[in-house]
Design a protein around this nucleic acid. Structure first.
Lengths: 343, 343
DNA sequence: GTCAACAACGAAAACGGTTTCGTGTTAATA
DNA sequence: TATTAACACGAAACCGTTTTCGTTGTTGAC
């Protein structure tokens, strides 16, 4: 077992000083050609690579970014993560991933852990509990320490920082509008139970579209489900006691489950009932019938978030003064039409 | 903006030495009660937390583990990742996630990057390209440097280290056996094109099960598909030119796509044809009909991998000598029966 | 009154690098 | 020949900790 070699060892072995070795490896012209070659050859032979931790300590830069997401086993977050990782990779950054599990406490603990020098900046989507509690002191504190932060998807107006979202309201509005134009009259909404920023915006789009087309809002046509659930009795009751001809769901899982129930009830999709879901993931593509879906462009979102963060990180250590400016990027969602709606 | 405070700043402020501050914060009894209280109060006021990087350098332990997976947008890997992250979290470790994108080069680069001090150990599944090239020098080198490594799922016999897998062969065998016992005679196999360790083992189980039940192997009933694909003409031709009454697929995506084609061809599932897939993910549960599936227990796999790794990391810095021993944990896959098979 | 023991603290090395600032030698210039 | 510039290198500080090993000043025992 040959442990990694250090500058000190090379220096001792070649009977020069540590500084000489360091300079020679950086092709400093302070060092003679002879010595440089000798040192580089030796270093190569022993696969010398500088220790990242030592570099981080010296440079006060880790080239790590911290990503905190509520759930990794969730297609949308996974795609965002992929976008982040890909972009970070091209810029030489590593990604430390933490899962908050929708828990406020885990979010706080993980952030504090990472903030003590492990990373250069954060990208995160708020946990459901954090949104419910409306407590963002941990974010404020992090920002106050001068650590860049980018929020995506699950954001809040109470924290001033860079953000990236999709136009949930408009996307939802357009989807409902499309259903109405297709002749649908009784359009249901299946959304989440807990207060999530995005669900709320999507609901608003739904309300507005109904109103603008003179359809009255029927509270019975709105079903609120827990975020993760196995039991389908609530959904079944919903379908049994209402007659509707279209459903908008705030995610694809809700949509696919709802389609199954409708089909079991003998309804034909899209003839009797149409479905549109958010999150254009693999489920939408492979559902039967394939689900018309609103693409949230997670990968692009991750890429943009990573880009915003890294720009801020790298600008930070150039200039120190200069007023901070924060942006909110809005990505346009797109409707992918498939078999669950007619056109 | 108040940057994080350091020991040095506390020391200067309180007019004591750095060592005194450090000791006081650790409740060393070398320091008087008065001084200790004063220092702790001050530290608390300014939210002092030791810098992780400095600690890592000093302790030669980062409390980071590196995870390299071929693809994060893949349900199985995502669940494994979740298992790793969860266990690591309970032990106070962070997870640095890298995606190799099935590329040998990215795998090598990422490993070398992380190996230079950023992490205490690796957990990884080999990229498809790495398995095809059969080149594992990067793994060997890492191990040689004394860095613990745990391979999962996509493993190789050419590298001696800890491993965790499922009993692919047996699981496949049992699935086919079940199909046969249900009266199926012409059982197809849909597997991957590129050489993947796991696909191969699953194919072996399929062969053996046929043989043991006196069914002859028909090469026409084996379809090899690229790992990721959009085009379905190959699959359609396969279904058009063969009549079969059951299909075993090496993952759930293949299975669900295959089911759709069969359905389009007017076949009834499970009456005319039965389906079983590997990877018991969300697709299997929500497919229509729901897919009978072999659960690979990804989360458990990740948890075990993380446990093996952390044990080795923490044992490493206790004793230095003592012969290394490596284990291979085999997790038993379980068949989850749903609507795509009859019983 | 002397010496040992002890309490309370500081100096310094170490982790592994980078970088600034000498310093000694040689060669070129006045 | 004296001065100086260029060259090639080393010493040391620094990043933020921990920890060993002094070094004080006070106390108690003899």
């Amino acid at each position: 077992m040959k442990k990694k070699i250090t500058l000190k060892q090379i220096a001792r072995e070649l009977d020069v000083s540590i500084s000489t070795v360091s300079k020679a490896l950086k092709n400093s012209k302070e060092i003679s050609k002879d010595t440089t070659e000798k040192i580089q050859a030796f270093a190569k032979l022993y696969h010398y690579k500088p220790n990242n931790i030592a570099l981080s300590l010296k440079n006060r830069r880790t080239r790590n970014i911290g990503v905190i997401i509520p759930d990794i086993v969730h297609h949308f977050f996974t795609t965002v993560f992929r976008g982040i990782e890909q972009y970070a990779d091209t810029k030489g950054y590593n990604v430390i991933a933490c899962v908050s599990d929708e828990s406020f406490e885990k979010e706080v603990i993980n952030m504090e852990l990472l903030a003590n020098g492990s990373i250069d900046g954060f990208i995160m989507a708020l946990s459901a509990e954090t949104q419910r509690k409306n407590d963002f002191h941990h974010l404020i504190e992090i920002i106050d320490q001068g650590m860049p932060l980018v929020l995506f998807d699950r954001i809040t107006d109470d924290v001033i920082c860079d953000k990236v979202v999709i136009n949930d309201f408009e996307a939802s509005y357009m989807a409902v509008k499309k259903l109405i134009e297709n002749g649908r009259k009784r359009i249901a909404l299946i959304t989440t139970e807990s207060y999530l920023n995005v669900s709320e915006k999507r609901a608003q789009g739904y309300y507005k579209a109904l109103k603008d087309h003179n359809l009255e809002l029927d509270e019975n046509l709105i079903l609120r489900l827990p975020y993760q659930f196995e039991d389908e009795t609530k959904s079944e009751a919903f379908f049994a006691s209402n007659n509707m001809d279209a459903v908008l769901c705030v995610n694809e899982i809700f949509a696919v489950r709802a389609m199954r129930i409708a089909q079991r009830n003998g309804m034909k999709i899209p003839d009797d009932i149409a479905f549109i879901g958010f999150t254009d993931g693999i489920l939408s593509k492979l559902a039967n019938p394939a689900l018309t879906s609103i693409a949230q462009h997670g990968e692009q979102m991750g890429e943009i978030a990573a880009k915003m963060l890294i720009e801020k990180i790298e600008r930070d250590d150039e200039i120190e003064t200069e007023e901070e400016t924060f942006r909110t990027e809005v990505i346009k969602a797109t409707l992918i039409e498939r078999e669950s709606t007619n056109n």
